[in-house]
Amino acid sequence: MRNFKGTREAFAAAVMDMAENDARVMVVSPDSLKAMRATEFGETYPDRYVECGIAEQGAVDVAAGLASCGMLPFVGTYCGFLTMRACEQMRTFVGYTDQNVKFVGVNAGLLGGEREGVTHQFYEDLAIVSAFPNFTIFTPADPAQCYHAVRLAAETQGPVYIRGGSGREVDVYDKEAPFSPDGITIWRDYGKDAVLFSNGYVLDRVIAAADILKDKGINVTVADINILYGKNDAKIVEAIRSAEQLFTIEDHNINGGLGSYISRLSTEHAPRKVKRIALTTYGESGPAKELADQYGYSPEAIAQTVAETLK
């Protein structure tokens, strides 16, 4: 495994590692090779790098054509430009056709978009992709998990969407830890006063919140949900059953992401109260940490919401 720092570098490292042994691996770029930190791929494999220019819809179509002829294309760029600009192409020519195209949508959430502002901050991607049958959705929680998610995506038949950041992610997992096929990893198990379900790059904040709560005598479990709407949800349902009060914390709109997923599983299998901590407004520009804090994702704010809800 190559060395890397953020999720975009993790993507680039993973495709470089895979391309050595798999001639099907290609990178399709809507002028995103630099943003995806994958210029080395373009230099090393010029015949397997397709530059489409600033044209996301065309890029997704090109990838669909490549996949229909047996190639394994990865399309990476800002997640909103994929899921909104090229929404129909993802849905009709990759989802409906069940093509082996892998998407990496970066700049996800407030943390991913941070200083860029709302035009380049996207908190709707999971809601959109989760409405497309055949898609597998991976939400890694740090760069190492993103690396393993990209590798697993290549082994997963059919369309895969991976949510990436922009380098502001905090390392949580051991670098070698695999991307859980169960879709859940328990990070704290202090008790069953509540389960805090997290996904994506706020996991470190949710873990910190659990530690704050423990000091206050509130003992919660923290679960990272790394696959959304997956086929294998038994262990997630088990976690849902384990407490009377559930929380979901995600850097995404309140509709259509982790909160919706957990609420659905709870409704179907084990009705529980679910408090969703997520975005209900558009964001703004700002440094990642301050921005996330401002919008309610500081460990203290999360802990406070949990404590007040449990009163």
Partner: peptide, 25 residues
């Protein structure tokens, strides 16, 4: 049927992908 179609405008880009795959292979 080699490729689903009907939503107008997408054929040329998809066909380009197919041609690129042929070249790569």
């Amino acid at each position: 049927v080699d490729m689903t179609s009907g939503s107008l405008g997408n054929g040329i880009a998809i066909a380009s992908g197919m041609a690129l795959a042929g070249r790569a292979q």
